[in-house]
């Protein structure tokens, strides 16, 4: 499905249909958590969610038309942001709690058992609180999540990228997702003069999600290096790819 052929409304409908299922941890360890059991739970859940995330990305109109190289680069860059924004959306109605999954709901203070994670929990809770204040709507969330993916890395977008066709397609895709978000805001009934403010407020969230993701990535890397938690398969690849890119 080419994004240019879709109206903003159709684009949003496709995003709704692309949504991944809610994942369960299954076999949650008994509370109270230890550092190892909490990290194991979080990484196990993340690994499951990653598989669904890739399926979700492939359903975003036009994503699979990008070069495979660009698809990989975008997903490698944004995977933790996508997990985090999903977490924030699930937690939006539950102040003080992080709804990692229906069977993994954590209070802020439960983060005390893992060195360095409380800072990240606080960032996640603060950003979730901001989403709540903004009364973020489901369709706005879907557009923002897609935008995080498509905007994840500048290299596929830049002039002189390795695949100019893919670069052009990505630019069209970014325009399409912007049109979709603008359409969603316009349909909300907000007065015209407030619509651009709302757009700006929503877009300003994205840098905070990126910041939380960067901190989370550093933390996960340190946990792995200290052997607090084994990281394997897809999650290991995504972690390595993200940290290697920084170098």
């Amino acid at each position: 499905i080419y994004p240019n052929a879709l109206s903003p409304e159709q684009f949003v409908i496709t995003l709704i249909e692309a949504e991944p299922p809610n994942v369960l941890l299954m076999n949650r360890p008994k509370k109270p958590f230890t550092e190892a059991s909490m990290m194991m739970s979080l990484t196990k859940l993340a690994d499951k969610e990653l598989v669904h995330m890739i399926g979700w990305a492939k359903k975003i109109p036009g994503f699979v038309e990008l070069s495979l190289f660009d698809q990989v680069r975008l997903l490698e860059s944004c995977w933790l942001e996508i997990l985090m924004v999903g977490l924030m959306w699930r937690s939006i109605e539950h102040p003080g709690k992080l709804i990692f999954a229906a069977d993994l709901i954590l209070d802020r203070d439960e983060g005390k058992c893992v060195e360095g994670i409380l800072e990240i929990f606080d960032m996640l809770l603060a950003t979730t609180s901001r989403l709540r204040d903004l009364k973020l709507q489901h369709k706005e969330y879907l557009c923002l999540k897609a935008m995080i993916l498509l905007n994840a890395n500048m290299f596929p977008l830049a002039m002189g990228s390795n695949d100019p066709d893919s670069s052009v397609k990505l630019r069209h895709l970014l325009n399409a997702i912007t049109d979709a978000l603008v359409w969603v805001i316009a349909k909300s009934g907000l007065p015209y003069r407030q619509q651009s403010n709302r757009l700006a407020n929503l877009l300003m969230l994205l840098s905070h999600v990126r910041h939380a993701s960067n901190k989370g990535m550093e933390h996960l890397l340190s946990m792995r290096c200290k052997n607090v938690v084994p990281v394997y398969d897809l999650l290991l690849e995504m972690l390595n790819a993200n940290t290697l890119q920084d170098h």
């Binding site: 399926g55 495979l68 990989v72 398969d233 897809l234 790819a241």
Partner: peptide, 13 residues
Amino acid sequence: SHKLVQLLATTAE
């Protein structure tokens, strides 16, 4: 990222 490429390249749901 072999697994990522594999998942992207497959057409299976």
